[in-house]
Design a protein around this nucleic acid. Structure first.
Lengths: 341, 341
DNA sequence: TTGTAGGCGTTATCAA
DNA sequence: TTGATAACGCCTACAA
């Protein structure tokens, strides 16, 4: 058994009350006693039992995050950078981070949220990859369970979130391609239920409209946000009679898959075909050629979300509950050259 | 406040003892009572409090994993696939998975392991990316804290692990390159303290010796297992007067960085320069050209490690405590062609 | 400034 | 087959 507060108290011939208060920094403990307590506690290697503290204080000092995605394609750089941000923020606040995995709208997903809200191993939850009608947001709000989100939903619900103005980003991206002479610009998106798809697709369409380019539904493909999904969707687009000269992808992974499809057809990306992504992950710097992308600050956003969540848990109002950030267009070689139209 | 066992008992006019035993499946409860209890518990939405249960049973029903690496370069596909495996296995055993982040041998790393062993929010720990003299293994063994590892250490310590025979894999890889006509084969590794480096580097050297090729230390570079690290190390190698015709990289990320360095020098990977990696992550399928690699079953290994850890926690002996797996050589275009020597 | 005592929600021991 | 009761380790109102 690990050393408990009792052991510390016994050693010092003090009551556990005094030890507890000394360690928690109450000011009704004499300076001398406090020092003795702290020294002894450290010497004995005393760390309060998480479970006991949780039970007594009725909070877990932990937050939870469920990784979206489907085995075996979990290798999403977005998630891992996001988790890193959550993990570091959690550590710096002396919180635990609980992680689970579940694919969107699966039984497993319902299970885990039910368990976390009932059994309370976490005080709050971070949501990502929101859906337009996100049942998780509804459910958590109904149960009055603290949560914050990366992105928002189309629900009559007010909750704290940070979202990217990816719509504006995609408009900008289309402009960039149009300026390079592109007229047949394709789009590979994600399933319609995701907010990110709704917004990025809207940006794509708005960008076309701004440039007086007709929307052509045959130039729209769908992926599942993975490399392989992008690869498959791009194959179809590139085999069209009237092939697009540019493909905008819903994220970097999709773009990486699309680049592969282009190569297999002997197309030189950047010259014969422009390809762009979204996220600005490290991958995008090292593709061949380097990938034009819209960069979002994943790591920092995750950290900031934890701060917001802590405010929510503490019951404080959040200074800026709805944060909207602009993605940064990073132009690289994959869209660097003018297309003769 | 959530519904407690008391509420269930009160509703049924039973003692909390009976309710507890009924729900935990003890056989000294009448069938009828058990059914009533289960029905009512479900109706009320009762889920046992994690904290109370932990305190009473003296176990957390949770396992922990610390992601190795340094912000902001956490985007390591190995880690994210590993976490997915741990997460799924944990979920299927009704365990929580606690995640933290710390760079190797940092203060933060010492901190988190101390906290986890003392404060006991987890019953056991999974270690990865072992170091030759891994203080974590020593520390956990000393404190008699259950753990399993991906890879092993050079310590007089017996603990359960799963490791890849990456040494044999690299020997095989060198053979493959030699058969393609390569004589100047370079190696980009990781810091020497990592077991994976010791083994892969040994395999590289052994492969050279088997082929009667002299070892040339100028052909050895070091990276930090990231794309950027691989990129930088490859730059130096490719600027040598006597340039290597092949580069073996300690992992896929390093190889991806190396490919970029090659492209920037106008070298066609696969024809002018062979490059190979290790891990067999999804990335490797989509590089230009697709990357030859040694594939290890990251997801499955993580799941299997959880099973082993559970045995350790339960105090059972593990049927096969030291598992050694062979990586699978996947030859792709990045090493597909013969080199004229 | 320090100590006593009760209870957070469970499970385990023992008695009925 | 069921129930009363005592912990698990900690925090805190209240008493001294």
């Amino acid at each position: 058994m690990a050393v408990t507060i009792r052991d510390v108290a016994k050693r010092l011939r003090l009551s556990i009350t005094t030890v507890s208060r000394a360690l928690d920094g109450y000011d009704d403990v004499s300076k001398k006693t406090r020092e003795r307590v702290i020294r002894t506690a450290r010497a004995l290697g005393y760390v309060p039992s998480r479970a006991a503290r949780q039970l007594r204080r009725q909070r877990a000092d932990a937050i939870g995050y469920v990784i979206p995605g489907q085995a075996p394609y979990f290798t999403d750089p977005f998630s891992s950078e996001f988790i890193a941000g959550l993990g570091d923020a959690a550590t710096s606040h002396n919180l635990d981070l609980l992680i689970s995995t579940a694919s969107p709208d699966s039984d497993a997903e319902h299970h885990i949220y039910a368990r976390w809200t009932q059994s309370r191993p976490v005080d709050g939850i971070v949501l990502s990859r929101l859906r337009l009608k996100d049942w998780r947001a509804k459910y958590l709000a109904q149960n009055d369970f603290p949560f914050v989100a990366h992105g928002h939903a189309r629900l009559r619900l007010d909750f704290p979130y940070i979202e990217m103005d990816s719509r504006a980003g995609f408009v900008q991206l289309v402009q960039h391609l149009v300026a390079r002479g592109h007229r047949r610009i394709a789009y590979i998106g994600a399933p319609a239920k995701f907010t990110l798809q709704a917004e990025r697709f809207a940006g794509y369409q708005e960008g076309l409209a701004d440039a007086n380019l007709a929307f052509d539904h045959t130039l729209v493909g769908e992926s599942d946000l993975t490399r392989t999904g992008g690869y498959q969707a791009a194959q179809r687009l590139l085999d069209l009679n009237a092939r697009p000269t540019a493909i905008i992808c819903v994220n970097d992974l999709t773009a990486i898959g699309a680049m592969r499809a282009a190569r297999e057809r002997g197309l030189l990306v950047g010259r014969d075909l422009a390809i762009a992504g979204y996220d600005g992950t490290e991958d995008s710097e090292h593709t061949d050629p380097p990938l034009t992308t819209l960069k979002q600050p994943i790591y920092d956003t995750a950290q900031r979300l934890v701060e917001m969540l802590l405010q929510r848990i503490a019951g404080n109002s959040i200074a800026e509950p709805h944060v909207i950030l602009q993605p940064e267009l990073i132009v690289r070689e994959s869209t660097a050259f003018d297309i003769a139209s």
